[in-house]
Design a protein around this nucleic acid. Structure first.
Lengths: 220, 220
DNA sequence: ATAAAAATTTAGACTAATCTAAAAATTTAT
DNA sequence: ATAAATTTTTAGATTAGTCTAAATTTTTAT
């Protein structure tokens, strides 16, 4: 059995690996996102390594074994399914769901997860546009890139966000930037790289480089 | 903050007190239903007492303080709401939900609980007929008694069960004994106190004294 | 290439929750 | 009313997960 805490480490390793295209993750990176100290991480890595959930060489960072990856994907599947439930069924905003899903993701019942998936209509993406792994851990893939990297004047669709902090999502709400919005970059400032964009052919706004970096789009 | 474990002790104390009409609960009783040893219980009681969640005098048993009772009722509220969700929305049988609800009851979000309650249509009873406390901890009351205590030939309605083990509930399913069924006791055996009962004026069955003791009914 | 800086691990301690074994208090039975 | 049986508590250990401080390894910079 894997504890709540172990599951959180596996999930953290998975997400960090993903952002680095499979490169090993360092103790300090893990300490930062798990909000603990490097010493505690070292200790946990030793234990996870004994359980063969991670590949760990002292001082050399860590990656997941197939079994570790499988566990991480199950947690992520549950996290994202519960997020869909919270938004679609209970009417939560996308900025209110992360912390609750952090708890729900540890509920341990295969049959519950599968029934929930069906109840929700087998969604492929969560309310932030993140792909929901299937029962076997396969992720639906979606070709997207940062809005900040888009070619000017191309027609785009907003598919996701790469940050899910409440302040960021509330900021997007204020700007009427929602998943599915049709976007077009009109201009990029030479001064601060802020973007002038058109939304749904209905109006235009200015957004900072930081915001544009955390919005994921595809060509229409 | 109360831990997962502390919440389980408070809940256990609440249920045991309820069954004894408010009398203090003993260390051994708690050890049995929490599946631990008396020594572990003693230790936990000392801690809960320091937090003023229970009234505890060494060797004299334990009752809940108002604050302890309030926490217990919140857990019970969540447990029973989630059970309704599992049955009404996800199609689980009443014999499959206890263990899952034991996990879900610890999810800590007031707003989630209230939205779930609304989503479910503010149910007053769970799938076993147990009353769901409201936000303030008030229980809807329902006058019921054991089927084993019913007067012969009286028209009755099945309102609940006082046991929720899967084998017991599956046994009731096999006998078509469901909440809301109209029952009438035709005869009680002088030999083993088994009951001959009529269900929904559609047929009759024989049930053991043990089963009849765990079925709650009211006069129609 | 080696010294300084940064990252990581080890050592030793702490807390929550548990255990067994032994001691103490209460209850029961004669 | 007192001895025996039962219940409960205490003492001392254990495990998971954390911490700080110190030691060690790796990386960076000259």
């Amino acid at each position: 059995m894997t504890s709540f805490t172990e599951e959180n480490y596996l999930k953290a390793i998975f997400h960090l690996c993903e952002n680095k295209n499979g490169l090993a993750v360092s103790t300090n990176e893990l300490a930062e996102i798990t909000q603990t100290r490097a010493a505690s991480v070292s200790d946990m890595l030793r234990r996870l390594s004994e359980k063969e959930l991670i590949l760990y060489k002292k001082y050399q960072g860590v990656t997941l074994t197939e079994e570790g990856k499988s566990i991480a994907l199950k947690i992520i599947r549950k996290h994202r399914l519960w997020e869909v439930f919270l938004v679609e069924k209970l009417g939560f905003g996308w900025d209110e769901i992360h912390e609750i899903a952090e708890e729900l993701e540890h509920i341990d019942s295969k049959v519950l997860t599968e029934r929930l998936d069906n109840f929700l209509g087998n969604p492929k993406f969560d309310p932030h546009g993140d792909p929901i792994p299937d029962e076997k851990g396969n992720m639906p893939s979606q070709v997207s890139f940062k809005l900040s990297e888009a070619v000017i004047n191309t027609e785009l669709v907003m598919l996701g966000v790469s940050e899910d902090s409440a302040p960021f999502l509330q900021h997007l709400d204020k700007l009427s930037l929602h998943l599915g919005a049709k976007l077009r970059v009109l201009d990029v400032s030479g001064y601060d790289q802020s973007l002038h964009i058109e939304i749904n052919k209905a109006g235009t706004i200015h957004i900072s480089k930081e915001v544009a970096c955390s919005i994921l789009v595809s060509k229409k």
